[in-house]
Nucleic acid binder design. Structure first.
Lengths: 274, 274
DNA sequence: GGAGCGCTGTATCTTATGTTACGTATTTTG
DNA sequence: CAAAATACGTAACATAAGATACAGCGCTCC
């Protein structure tokens, strides 16, 4: 059964021509606000012409544009009056989406529950104090997380390096690492031997290791100065790195805040270089 | 300090003549819906004449009725986009961590609220049906997401390619792309011209584009067959890609499920190769 | 490769919305 | 109690909004 206009749209969006689909996507993207504006504004936002908007509305079954707007307003009114209806009832979902989202949200809450503010502040402080270099590395599936963090950190401070490619390539970088340096490692099951060996060698050189891992803890935890254990279980064939991703973003934000003064100048300098 | 229009009204309602006060009360009674309707409807609801409504609006400091409506819409937009502001208790948080987590969780809920099961299923089906090749590419900060998704998809099906490095390198890959192929693009603010140009060219070659973007929609949405608009606002200097990350994981899970039979065999084959 | 169909945008028209002018009613003040 | 000022509604107006007709373009299918 189709109750809301949003559902109606996503039900029929597949059978729409390109222009009307753009209209639909624009409306859904910030629903329902765009639909409350004038046809001209709607069409401009979607990058199509006014008649396309009107055809789109007609395809949804409305006689004219005002009727469509009234329907949106009624829906909005119902929504605003009972905020409860916004927290979606579990029954309606049914599909494969909701369980995945719910599990992910739970994972994040759990991950942060086991993570004190102080711990995060300590790690952020360590990343922000620029005595030495910062290296980041990840495993097979978590390497993108290392890249993501490196991409941000490299903007607000110098000497940030993402270790990529062949194992032999990282190993050679060990020569540059010392006790003033920090190594951020992402490693979740199944833990990679190559990463463990690398971590061990770095540890022996006095490098401080910050480890992002799952709740079962990678063997690298043994060498790590700081360990962040994220929940990874979701109803999927794969483990989820989403909780670790959010921790990474939180740290990026915290480090940025600490380097505000120096960082802001650096960002301006970078902008002017582009 | 007066922030919302509702506060503004209740601040001045005492100094209003009878007719305008009725208008004010009617608006407050089911705020802000009545204000989004036409002057005629508003006046009918309040039991006064149209000019009274206009005088009421003028007294609030607006130049004309449309300006008043725009202000209401903006307010509504802010409210709908961050449900957090409606529930959040300032006391519990304190530290810098919790607001970030809360915002991220809200972003995810909001993102999925605008994303129907059917839409996700359609995209997953498109990714799972292996008529052609699958290409993934991302912007400056979102490229890791493309990598993450590519790393998973490449395991369960052949012909998955992540486009990395120089722009000139991707462009050369265009020659391999046709209408049977799918291009997954991640692009959030600030949108990259190079990516837009690339998307346009791919689109002209008939490639189906699946776009991950933010709620303001990258210009690439114009060329995209499917658009996923994730919420990115967090209390940080950076935008958050976490919501898009979770959508990506959800899709990976869905595609994996669809390819279960074929995929399981492929995974076993890969395992035996390691 | 060609013919047909369908989609989209430009330009025009019509509708209805917001706005203003003015006369009447009501309230307030001297 | 009278007179003035303010508030309100009716009606006419101008403007901007939505609707439509039509032509061009791209796409699909034969």
């Amino acid at each position: 059964m189709i109750s809301s206009i949003a559902e109606l749209i996503s039900d029929r969006i597949g059978a729409m021509p390109a222009g009307e689909r753009r209209a639909a996507q624009t409306l859904i993207a910030n629903y329902p606000l765009t639909g409350l504006k004038t046809v001209a504004e709607f069409s401009a936002a979607a990058g199509v012409s006014s008649p396309t908007i009107l055809r789109f509305v007609a395809r949804l079954g409305f006689q004219n544009y005002p009727e469509f707007q009234s329907a949106l307003q009624d829906e909005l009114a119902a929504q605003l009056q009972s905020p409860a209806s916004r927290t979606l009832d579990p029954g309606s979902a049914g599909g494969a989406v909701s369980p995945m989202l719910e599990a992910t949200l739970d994972n994040m809450r759990e991950t942060f529950r086991h993570l004190s503010d102080k711990q995060l502040a300590d790690i952020a402080a360590r990343l922000a104090e620029r005595r030495g270099k910062t290296f980041l590395i990840g495993g097979r599936f978590t390497d993108p997380l290392a890249r993501y963090m490196a991409a941000h950190l490299a903007i607000i401070q110098p000497d940030v390096y993402h270790l990529a490619g062949q194992e032999s390539i990282w190993r050679d970088r060990l020569i540059d690492m010392g006790k003033r340096d920090v190594l951020v490692i992402f490693d979740i099951r199944r833990y990679q031997d190559s990463l463990v060996r690398f971590a061990e060698k770095a540890h022996h050189r006095g490098v401080q290791i910050i480890l992002f891992t799952d709740q079962w803890l990678s063997p690298i935890a043994r060498f790590a100065r700081h360990v962040i254990a994220g929940r990874t279980a979701v109803p999927s064939a794969w483990d989820s790195s989403a909780a670790l991703f959010v921790v990474a973003e939180t740290l990026i934000g915290a480090v940025t805040r600490q380097l505000e003064a120096a960082g802001a100048k650096r960002i301006r300098d970078l902008e002017s270089l582009r």
